[in-house]
Design a binder for these strands. Structure first.
Lengths: 208, 208
DNA sequence: AGAAAAACTGGACAGTCGTCCAAAAAAGAG
DNA sequence: CTCTTTTTTGGACGACTGTCCAGTTTTTCT
C-alpha cells in the first residue's frame, strides 16, 4: 500500500507549505490560492486532500510546533543538573531567531482560536503539552534541590507558563519594531525572569 | 462651527461602532459592510469619514483602551498604601468580565501589528502608556517600603508587564474554553503572581 | 497490453471584499 | 425663499474569496 503512504506524505507536505504560507502572511491575509501557488500545485488539489479551508487550517495547527517542542523537550531534559534554565534560554533564543515567523504564527492561531471555536481544541492540546513540559521540569527541580517547595501544581505551572509565554509575545512585538538588539535584550531579560521565578529574591538588583 | 463638532462626533461614533464590531467578530472576519450595518449607516459613509479601511482601523486602535486605562490609572493610584496590587487585581477582574471581548480584541490587534507595520506604531503607543503605569507603581513601591531594591528600570518593568500581559492572555484562552470558574482561577493565580513578583520568596507554598 | 483507480488540472460558480461615484437628501447661509 | 455646502445614499466596478466539478493525466493492478 504505497498509495496510502504517498497520499499521507503529500498531505503532510501540503500542511508544511500551508504552515509556511500562514507564517509569512498571517491567518487574516492568506488564501487557498496563496498556499496552492506556494506549494506549486493547482487550487483543486487542496480540496482533493482537505475537505475545506477550515480542515486544512486545523491540520496545520495540530501538526504545528512538532519539531520545536521535540527539540525543547530533548534539550531541556538532557541539560546538566543545575543549568536547565540556561538550556531553555538557549533553545528559545535560537528558535526565536531562526523560526521567528513560526512563533508569530503561534500567537496568531491562539488569537483566532478565541474567535473560531473549532480551533480552540487543537490549540488546547499544544498548550497542555507545553504545560506538561514545565511540570516535568518542576518535579525535577524539586527532586534535585530537595527544596521544601511543595508546589501547588496547577497554579505554579500556569504561572510559569504565562510568564514565559507573555515574554515571548513581548519579544516578538518589540522585534517587529526595532529588530536590532531585541535578541540581546530578550536573553538578558529572560535570565532575569528565571531568576525571579526560581531564586529566593524577587526583583533583586543584579543587572547593572 | 457646530459643523466641525458634529462631524467629529460622528467620527468618534463610527469608531466606537467599529470597535464593537471588531471586538465581536475579530479583525480577520470583519468587513466594512458589517460595521456600516451595525452603525445603521450606509456603506459609503465610512469612506466619507475615513479614506480607507486601514485608516478606520488605525483610528480604532488609537482610540482603544481609553476608558480602561483611565480607570486603571485612577484606581491604582488612589489605592491605599499597601494594597495597590489588590486594587489592580480588582480592576482587572471586573474589566475582564465586563469587557472581555475588548481585551480579546487587544491581543488580536497586537498580533495584526506584527503583520501590518502600519498598526505597529499605535500599538506601541498604548503599550508604552501601560509601561509608564507600571513604572509609576514601582517608584511608589520603592518609596513606601524604602526597600533596597535598586530596580533596573527597563528590565524590571518589561518583566512585570510581560508577566501580567501573558497572564491576561492565558485567562482569555482558558475562558473561551471553560468559562465556568475561569474568573476565580484568575483571581487566585493573579494574587500568586503578584506575590511571586514582589515578595521575598518565589514559588512559595501558600495556596492549599 | 488494457482496464480501473487515483491524482491532478484549469476554469466556472456564486459570493464577498474594498473602493469609488453620480445623484439625492439635509443643513446652512444669504 | 434660493443658492451653496455638507451629508448621505444605493449601487456599480473589478478583484478576490472558498467551493466545486467535468475532464485529463498519471499510476496501479490484472
Amino acid at each position: 500500500m504505497t498509495t496510502q503512504k504517498k497520499a499521507e506524505a503529500k498531505r503532510t507536505f501540503l500542511i508544511e507549505q500551508a504552515t509556511a504560507c500562514l507564517a509569512e502572511k498571517g491567518y487574516a491575509h492568506v488564501s487557498l490560492r496563496d498556499i496552492a501557488k506556494e506549494s506549486g500545485v493547482s487550487l483543486g488539489i487542496l480540496h482533493y486532500y482537505f475537505a475545506s479551508k477550515e480542515e486544512l487550517l486545523l491540520a496545520v495547527i495540530s501538526s504545528y510546533k512538532g519539531r520545536f517542542m521535540e527539540e525543547l523537550e530533548r534539550e531541556v531534559i538532557a541539560a546538566p543538573s543545575g543549568e536547565w534554565s540556561a538550556a531553555l534560554a538557549s533553545v528559545l533564543c535560537r528558535s526565536l531567531q531562526e523560526d521567528r515567523k513560526l512563533h508569530r504564527l503561534w500567537y496568531d492561531l491562539q488569537v483566532q482560536a478565541m474567535y473560531v471555536p473549532a480551533f480552540g481544541e487543537q490549540v488546547k492540546v499544544i498548550r497542555s503539552r507545553l504545560h506538561q513540559l514545565i511540570s516535568r521540569m518542576l518535579v525535577r527541580l524539586q527532586r534535585e534541590e530537595q527544596s521544601s517547595l511543595t508546589i501547588d501544581e496547577d497554579s505554579a505551572i500556569s504561572l510559569i507558563y504565562s510568564a514565559i509565554d507573555g515574554f515571548l509575545f513581548q519579544f516578538l512585538l518589540d522585534e517587529s519594531q526595532k529588530p536590532e538588539e531585541a535578541i540581546a535584550r530578550f536573553e538578558q531579560a529572560f535570565a532575569h525572569l528565571m531568576h525571579t521565578l526560581f531564586s529566593s529574591e524577587s526583583l533583586s538588583p543584579e543587572s547593572r
